[in-house]
Amino acid sequence: MALISLLAVSAIIFWCVELLPGDAAERILGRNATPESLALLRETLNLHLSAPERYLTWLSNLLSGDFGTSLVADRPVLDYIASRIANTALLSGFALILYIPISIALGVITAINRGRMADHAISVVVLIFMCLPEFVIGILLISIFAIKLAWLPPLALIGQANGFGDLLRLIALPTITIVAAMSAYAVRMMRESLIEVLDSSYVLMARLKGLPTWRVLLFHALPNALGPAINITALNVAWMIGGVVVVEAVFEFPGIGRLMVDSISHKDVPVILAISMVMTGAYIATNLIADVLVILLNPKLR
């Protein structure tokens, strides 16, 4: 099923790219194109073949493990996208590491303080973050922390990183942006499902047995409330895979999202296809993992 999905996605994307006006040869030569230079370049790039022919060539190469060569950068696609994938994975990884404890902690705090000041205060902040587009969060973070206070560098030019500490400083702002955008949903979700569990009869039972609150929370309530949170996390990761485009644009981060936007503008078909495959694959994998986790965590389904 996953393979069929990937295949279908590749066909859809290929067809979309075919609809784009112009071709890679025009994009490369740009303003200085002459009919002769265009014809010559099209020949070298195999653009004179028909669209189905090119798609089938791409597909058969893929089956033998070859992602092809970037039309524009003139280097193997795999080599080209590998470093970008690594960069985006690094950014997403840091974001996830921060996101999970933050959303669980805030979710727990709001749930056990339900209706009190702490709940209201956190809920309002969370609501605001949820409703601010991430590019606005990014611009505000840059204005405040990089320009006004000069605590952190504004752009994630990770090529400049000189050691791990430096790297952390460079990716701090984009990481915070992603975490803010993602946590908002998760905190709300966590709060709602925790409240529900806390109200349930077996938590009441545990309390009646005289167990301390933290034990009730940790061993009885939390595992049961995690299921929905995992689903939300899966959705968040799926969002991050595509939505990182905007964050990367704001912070000039050399990741896969920016490469995708560039490749669309250059009409670099093999690169666009490869990135779509990676993104879709990641989406499918995330959902599978989430499904498995939910089953493992839920005693009723186990």
Binding site: A8, V9, I13, V17, L19, I272, M279, T280, Y283
Partner: peptide, 19 residues
């Protein structure tokens, strides 16, 4: 399912660049 598995923003950029 297949349509949903393509990241929204990416698909949007593709479509809007095309049309």
């Amino acid at each position: 399912d297949i349509l949903i598995s393509i990241p929204t923003l990416v698909l949007a950029l593709l479509i809007i660049s095309a049309v």
